[in-house]
Amino acid sequence: MMGQNTGTQSGFFREAGRLTLLFAEIIRSICTQRLAWSDVLYQLYFIGNRSQTVVLITGSFTGMVLCAQTYFQFHKVKMDSASLSIVSVAMASELGPVLAGLMVAGRVGAAMTAELGTMRVTEQIDALRTLATHPVDYLVVPRFLATVVAMPLLTVEAIAIGIAAGWFVATGVLGVDPAYSIKHMLHFTEVNHLLMGSLKAVVFGGIIALIGCYKGLNCGDGAEGVGRATNDAVVHACVGILVTNFFLTMFLRSVLYPQ
């Protein structure tokens, strides 16, 4: 049992080390190699534009249910019109980036791993290398940049639609006063909440792309290897987002709200 734990720990540190090396290679490539903007734009379209539906649906229904649950509790203490401000602050600083991150990890992270993994098992990555092209330059950097740019944009969309959907539920379904709802929301929601959500989204985008590409480039042989790598990529990216979120919240809180 103890041996198993040691093996798991050394495996974790080995993976963490390799991820760090891949990240360093990405930064090096961005700084030293000529960027293929057309590839970045294509990935931006794929990651950003085609992820919108799932992010918007998630954002809107989360905003609606959060607003309804908050209203049910606040109604007991006659604070109905404060419900939307809870939705707004929660969506902007926590739920928007985390839910968008989880959705993008499931959709985009999995697709990245499956695509790069298939390229690996069909020797296309080796073919790239024999054509004097570094896989990080051609495959990883455009995906990394596109995800890092697309994630904050998707997050802002999720926040906006979540608040709008919450407002609709509060005023249209639960009968809360529209004017007071907006007034309280604007009073309690700060620019820093939105800034915190956007900064988190950038980090989550980096985590999704880094893990997705790493798992794809290092997947095992055959269809089983690609399937396992894809599964691992989604699970690890989701866990990474949730764990990082806590530390980012504490860190950004201390930076954005200094004592």
Partner: peptide
């Protein structure tokens, strides 16, 4: 160094 080489892979390995 690889600029000196050309390689034909078993499955051709064309970029899909």
């Amino acid at each position: 160094v690889r600029r000196k080489f050309g390689m034909l892979f078993q499955g051709a390995a064309l970029f899909d």
